[in-house]
Simulated assay, not measured.
Amino acid sequence: MREWTHAEHAAAVATEIARMADVLKGRDMSVAVRTCPGWDLARLVTHTGGVHRWVAAMVRDLAERRYDRDGMDMGLPTDPGGYAAWLAEGAAFLPEALLSQDPEASMWSWAGEKRVRFWSRRMLHETLVHRVDAELALGVPVVIDERVAADGVEEFLDVLPYVKWNPDVAEIRGGGETISLQADTGAGWVITLDPDRFHHRRSLQPGTVTVRAATSADLLQVVWGRRSPDDYAIEGDGGLFGWWRGLTQI
């Protein structure tokens, strides 16, 4: 796997926002989103577009604190028929905001990486996962670039320790057991459960339990809870993976 630059992440953000808006154009916004229980497409769009505007504002200001997203005027159209176009606007203003700042500049984030570059990567995968949600809701094919997907699996593992809104994450500890995520396309990660924490590394080695899938795109959907691991080969202690997956719903 090759490392991404901030500029590459920002460019991919624009591509993913445009793809998501395209999927939603002309659609019934009342369609239920089964991968986000209780949400419909309208809620999915307003959440995703709202996050784009929230992050763009903080990046422009190099915010030292979290802005109140609920208190921001997002300029949401009154007619849901305009939601897809409203979402599409982010393909211009969000990358522009991200590229307007030094990627190494300090700013607030909820994870360990407190620099502008955190947000270019986070916004790529936030948008990608919600584009997948929309496609699954509408029954249209899900196509994910393999390089983007591999970065997305690793980003999930990178941010997982900082997910304070799900207290279950703090329970992901063990006695050295390993969970291996392997794609036939050549990407792989091993998560090690230590008594006080967990950590991960790139590796093609099997683990106490190994999940094998055809692509990183498949693994991305598994770790984000968008596909069942039962669809793929599980070798070893399947109960361990079920336990881990149950604690990692973010």
Score class of each variant (00 low, 15 high):
Met1Gln: 14
Arg2Pro: 12
Trp4Asn: 03
Ala11Ser: 13
Ala14Met: 02
Glu16Arg: 05
Glu16Gly: 07
Ile17Ala: 04
Arg19Phe: 03
Arg19Met: 12
Arg19Val: 03
Met20Phe: 06
Ala21Tyr: 07
Asp22Pro: 01
Gly26Met: 01
Asp28Leu: 03
Asp28Tyr: 09
Met29Ala: 14
Ser30His: 12
Ser30Val: 11
Pro37Cys: 10
Trp39Ile: 12
Leu44Gly: 08
Thr46Asn: 07
Val51Trp: 01
Val51Phe: 01
His52Leu: 09
Arg53Thr: 06
Trp54Lys: 08
Trp54Ile: 03
Val55Gln: 02
Val55Ile: 14
Met58Arg: 00
Val59Met: 06
Glu64Trp: 07
Arg69Lys: 14
Leu76Met: 13
Thr78Lys: 13
Pro80Leu: 11
Gly82Thr: 04
Ala84His: 06
Ala84Cys: 12
Ala84Glu: 03
Ala85Arg: 03
Leu87Lys: 04
Glu89Ser: 00
Gly90Gln: 03
Ala91Ser: 14
Phe93Asp: 14
Pro95Leu: 01
Glu96Asp: 15
Glu96Met: 06
Leu98Met: 07
Asp102Val: 09
Ser106Glu: 15
Met107Asp: 02
Glu113Trp: 02
Glu113Ile: 14
Arg115Pro: 00
Arg115Asp: 09
Val116His: 07
Arg117Leu: 08
Arg117Tyr: 04
Trp119Ala: 02
Ser120Cys: 08
Arg121Cys: 08
Arg122Ile: 12
Arg122Pro: 01
Leu124Trp: 10
Glu126Leu: 00
Val129Pro: 09
Arg131Asn: 08
Leu136Ser: 09
Ala137Tyr: 00
Leu138Phe: 09
Gly139Phe: 02
Asp145Gln: 05
Asp145Gly: 13
Ala150Asn: 02
Val153Glu: 05
Val153Asp: 04
Glu154Val: 06
Asp158Ala: 15
Leu160Lys: 01
Tyr162Pro: 04
Val163Pro: 00
Trp165His: 14
Asn166Cys: 06
Asp168Ser: 15
Val169Ala: 10
Glu171Pro: 03
Glu171Ser: 14
Ile172Asn: 08
Arg173Thr: 15
Gly176Pro: 09
Gly176Met: 10
Glu177Tyr: 09
Ile179Tyr: 02
Ile179His: 07
Gln182Ala: 09
Thr185Asn: 11
Thr185Cys: 12
Thr185Val: 11
Gly188Lys: 00
Trp189Thr: 07
Trp189Gly: 00
Val190Trp: 00
Leu193Trp: 04
Asp194Glu: 15
Pro195Ser: 09
Phe198His: 10
His199Val: 03
His199Ala: 13
His199Trp: 14
His200Ala: 10
Arg202Phe: 09
Ser203Tyr: 09
Gly207His: 00
Val209Tyr: 04
Val209Met: 00
Ser216Met: 07
Ala217Asp: 02
Leu219Trp: 02
Leu219Thr: 08
Leu220Ile: 05
Gln221Trp: 08
Gln221Ile: 00
Val223Ala: 09
Gly225Arg: 12
Arg226Ala: 01
Ser228Cys: 01
Asp231Gly: 12
Asp231His: 14
Tyr232Ile: 12
Ala233Ile: 13
Ile234Ala: 14
Gly236Arg: 06
Phe241Val: 02
Trp243Leu: 10
Trp244Leu: 13
Arg245Gly: 11
Ile250Pro: 01
Ile250Ala: 13
